[in-house]
Amino acid sequence: MTAILNPTGPAPLSPPQRRAPEPAAAPRSPVPVGPVLELPGTPAAALVPVTRDGRAVGAFVLTGGRVRYRALPDPEQVLAAVAGVAAIGLVTAAVAVASRRRPPAIGAVTMGPGGWVSLRGTRLPALRPARPRPWWARVLRAHRLVVDP
């Protein structure tokens, strides 16, 4: 440590005095622990509510010489958890629907003797539902090709 002394200058000042902290005039927020509430019943019980920012967050329960703290669920946290679970469920359902594979319209196609294609054991694909004829089919007097079974 280096000290610079000036013999011709004014006398050094005494170190500043520390002031004692001033007591708070009024608390910023109400007392976080509420009054003791006596509960009716055979075992003597008391309830002391606990608040934070004007909202109840829990309570101390005094019964049988024991003190227990019971927390209350925060509605904002419950709502956030429900929204998160719903979002995960929707994403999972969307992935399941998108990755679903459609079954083939016909069964297995095999090559028979002589090079012909065999579709044995397959069922016919379902017919499309009847739709109104398009304008061009009416102009050309065209009809749908129907296969007789």
Score class of each variant (00 low, 15 high):
residue 96 A to H: 09
residue 122 T to C: 07
residue 37 L to H: 09
residue 48 V to D: 07
residue 30 P to Y: 02
residue 61 V to I: 14
residue 100 R to K: 14
residue 95 V to W: 15
residue 98 A to S: 08
residue 38 E to L: 14
residue 70 R to S: 10
residue 124 L to K: 04
residue 110 T to A: 12
residue 117 V to C: 06
residue 105 A to G: 04
residue 120 R to T: 10
residue 30 P to L: 04
residue 66 R to Y: 01
residue 86 A to C: 05
residue 48 V to P: 10
residue 106 I to R: 01
residue 120 R to P: 01
residue 24 A to V: 13
residue 64 G to A: 12
residue 24 A to N: 07
residue 118 S to A: 06
residue 104 P to C: 13
residue 55 R to M: 08
residue 52 R to P: 00
residue 60 F to R: 02
residue 108 A to E: 14
residue 93 A to W: 15
residue 97 V to H: 11
residue 90 L to W: 10
residue 91 V to G: 13
residue 46 A to G: 12
residue 52 R to M: 11
residue 71 A to T: 01
residue 26 A to I: 05
residue 23 P to C: 00
residue 95 V to K: 03
residue 32 P to Q: 05
residue 40 P to M: 12
residue 87 A to Q: 09
residue 39 L to H: 05
residue 57 V to N: 02
residue 95 V to F: 12
residue 17 Q to P: 01
residue 99 S to D: 13
residue 128 R to T: 01
residue 98 A to Q: 12
residue 110 T to F: 03
residue 27 P to C: 03
residue 132 P to Y: 00
residue 124 L to C: 08
residue 112 G to D: 10
residue 127 L to R: 07
residue 79 L to M: 13
residue 52 R to Y: 13
residue 108 A to Q: 12
residue 12 P to E: 09
residue 64 G to H: 07
residue 55 R to G: 08
residue 53 D to Q: 10
residue 73 P to D: 12
residue 103 P to H: 06
residue 125 P to C: 02
residue 58 G to Q: 03
residue 84 G to V: 07
residue 40 P to C: 09
residue 63 T to M: 10
residue 110 T to R: 15
residue 23 P to M: 02
residue 108 A to G: 10
residue 25 A to V: 14
residue 107 G to M: 13
residue 102 R to A: 15
residue 95 V to S: 11
residue 72 L to Q: 10
residue 105 A to H: 04
residue 69 Y to K: 07
residue 92 T to R: 14
residue 66 R to H: 04
residue 124 L to R: 04
residue 101 R to P: 07
residue 37 L to M: 11
residue 75 P to K: 03
residue 121 G to W: 01
residue 12 P to R: 05
residue 40 P to F: 11
residue 42 T to Q: 11
residue 44 A to E: 14
residue 79 L to H: 06
residue 36 V to K: 07
residue 131 R to F: 08
residue 36 V to R: 15
residue 32 P to H: 05
residue 76 E to C: 00
residue 126 A to F: 00
residue 78 V to E: 14
residue 55 R to P: 06
